[in-house]
C-alpha cells in the first residue's frame, strides 16, 4: 500500500516535532484547567457587563466565563485555530512545495506511484497527526478536570466536551485541507502567506460577521469559522446545528482534497 508508505515515511520524519508540540499543548490545556476560578470570574461580571457588545464579541463571551464549559469555550475552543491551526497551516503549506523546491519529489514521482496517492499520503499524515494531537490534548484536559480541585467534575458536561473535541478535529482537518490545496500549486512562501491570510480572513468573518452591515452578513457562510461555533453546545448544551456544521466542514474538506488532487495531477514538476 503505497499511500501507507508515504504516510509512514512522513510520520517518521516529523514525529519528534509533533511529540514536543503535543506535550506542550497538552500541558497548556491542563494549565488552563488549573487556572479556572469561578469566583474570580463572577466578580468581573459587573465590570465586563458595561462593555459594548462589539468589544465583548472581540474578547469572548464574558458571562459564560463563570461556568467551566464557558471558560473552556472562550479560552480554548474559540482560540484552538491559533493553538493548533497555525502549526498545521505552516507545516501543510510548506510540505509539497518544499519537496518540489528540494527536488526530492523527482525521485518519488518517477517511481510507479500515482500522484493522487502522493497527495493523499501527505494529507492523511497530517490528519493522523491532528487526530493524535487532539486525542492527547483531550486526555490531558480531562485528566486535569479530575486532578485539579478548582473544577468539580460532576458539574462538567463531558459529552458536550467530547463532541467539542471531535468538532475541533473536524475543523482542524478543514484548515489542513485549505492549506493543502494552496500547497499543490504555489511556492513555499506564497503558499504560507496566502494560507495564513485566508485563515485570518476567515476568522475575522467568522468572529465579527454580526457587526457587518446586514446586506453583507451573508458572507459568514463562506468562513469555516462560522461552522465551528462551540459556545451554544458547551455553555447552553444546545445541540442545534452541531451535526450540520460537522458535515459541512467534512464536505468542505472532501471538496478541497479532491480539488487538490485534480490540480496536482495537472501541474508540471519543474526542474
Amino acid at each position: 500500500m503505497k499511500i501507507f508508505q508515504i504516510i509512514l515515511k512522513e510520520i517518521k520524519d516529523s514525529y519528534k516535532g509533533i511529540l514536543i508540540f503535543t506535550v506542550l499543548l497538552s500541558l497548556f490545556f491542563m494549565w488552563f484547567v488549573s487556572f479556572y476560578d469561578p469566583e474570580l470570574f463572577a466578580g468581573m461580571e459587573d465590570i465586563l457587563d458595561s462593555y459594548p457588545d462589539a468589544i465583548k464579541q472581540l474578547v469572548g463571551d464574558f458571562l459564560s466565563l463563570t461556568i467551566f464549559s464557558g471558560y473552556i469555550n472562550v479560552y480554548l475552543f474559540a482560540l484552538a485555530w491559533f493553538y493548533f491551526g497555525l502549526y498545521f497551516i505552516m507545516k501543510t503549506t510548506q510540505d509539497i512545495p518544499k519537496e518540489i523546491e528540494n527536488k526530492t519529489i523527482d525521485l518519488v514521482l518517477s517511481k510507479p506511484i500515482k500522484r493522487w496517492k502522493f497527495v493523499i499520503g501527505k494529507y492523511f499524515h497530517y490528519v493522523f497527526l491532528t487526530f493524535f494531537m487532539v486525542i492527547c490534548v483531550a486526555l490531558c484536559f480531562f485528566l486535569g478536570i479530575f486532578i485539579f480541585p478548582n473544577v468539580t467534575p460532576s458539574e462538567v458536561y463531558f459529552i458536550e466536551l467530547i463532541v467539542a473535541f471531535i468538532w475541533l478535529f473536524v475543523f482542524l482537518v478543514a484548515l489542513i485541507s485549505t492549506s493543502l490545496i494552496l500547497s499543490t500549486f504555489l511556492k513555499p512562501r506564497r503558499a504560507l502567506a496566502l494560507g495564513l491570510g485566508i485563515v485570518i480572513f476567515f476568522y475575522i468573518i467568522g468572529a465579527f460577521w454580526e457587526n457587518f452591515d446586514e446586506s453583507l452578513q451573508g458572507i459568514k457562510y463562506t468562513s469555516i469559522f462560522y461552522y465551528f461555533e462551540t459556545s451554544n453546545l458547551l455553555v447552553n448544551q444546545v445541540w442545534d446545528n452541531v451535526l450540520r456544521d460537522i458535515l459541512i466542514l467534512t464536505g468542505y474538506s472532501v471538496f478541497l482534497v479532491v480539488a487538490s488532487i485534480l490540480i496536482f495531477n495537472r501541474r508540471d514538476i519543474p526542474v
Binding site: 527536488k103 523527482d106 525521485l107 518517477s110 510507479p112
Partner: peptide, 18 residues
C-alpha cells in the same frame, strides 16, 4: 500509466535526496 515505471530506473540531473 505509472506501472511502466516498475521497469525504469531514473537518476535526475539535479538530485534531491531526503
Amino acid at each position: 500509466d505509472v506501472e511502466i515505471r516498475n521497469r525504469i530506473g531514473y537518476l535526475p540531473g539535479e538530485l534531491g535526496l531526503y
